Amino acid sequence: MKQFIDFIPLILFFIVYKLDPRAVEILGQIYTLGGIFSATAVLIISSVIVYGVLFVLQRKLEKSQWLTLIACLVFGGMTLAFHSETFLKWKAPVVNWLFAAAFAASHFIGDKPLIERIMGHAISLPQALWTRLNIAWVLFFLFSGAANLFVAFTFHEIWVDFKVFGSLGMTLLFMIGQGVFIARHMQHAESDPALDKTKD
Rank of each mutant, 00 (worst) to 15 (best):
Met1Asp: 12
Met1Leu: 11
Met1Phe: 07
Ile5Met: 12
Ile5Asp: 05
Asp6Cys: 05
Asp6Gln: 05
Asp6Leu: 13
Phe7Val: 06
Ile8Ser: 05
Pro9Val: 06
Leu10Arg: 02
Ile11Leu: 11
Ile11Cys: 07
Leu12Cys: 13
Val16Ser: 02
Tyr17Met: 03
Lys18Thr: 08
Leu19Asp: 13
Ala23Ser: 15
Ile26Trp: 15
Gly28His: 02
Gly28Ser: 06
Ile36Thr: 12
Val42His: 07
Ile49Leu: 15
Gly52Phe: 00
Val53Gln: 04
Leu57Asp: 15
Arg59Thr: 10
Arg59Val: 06
Arg59Gly: 08
Lys60Phe: 09
Leu69Cys: 01
Ile70Ser: 06
Ile70Tyr: 03
Cys72Ile: 10
Gly76Tyr: 00
Thr79Ser: 03
Leu80Tyr: 08
His83Phe: 11
Lys89Ser: 09
Lys89Cys: 01
Trp90Asp: 05
Ala92Arg: 02
Pro93Glu: 02
Phe99Lys: 05
Phe99Gln: 06
Phe108Leu: 07
Ile109Cys: 08
Ile109Pro: 00
Arg117Phe: 11
Ile118Gly: 04
Leu125Ala: 13
Leu125Glu: 11
Leu125Trp: 07
Leu129Asp: 13
Trp137His: 05
Leu139Arg: 07
Phe140Ile: 12
Ala147Asp: 07
Phe150Asn: 15
Val151Gln: 02
Ala152Val: 01
His156Phe: 04
Ile158Leu: 09
Val160Tyr: 00
Val164Pro: 01
Ser167Pro: 03
Gly169Ser: 08
Gly169Val: 02
Met170Asn: 15
Leu173Asn: 08
Ile176Pro: 03
Gly177Phe: 10
Val180Ser: 09
Ala183Cys: 05
His185Met: 14
Met186Gln: 13
Gln187Leu: 12
Ser191His: 07
Asp200Trp: 15
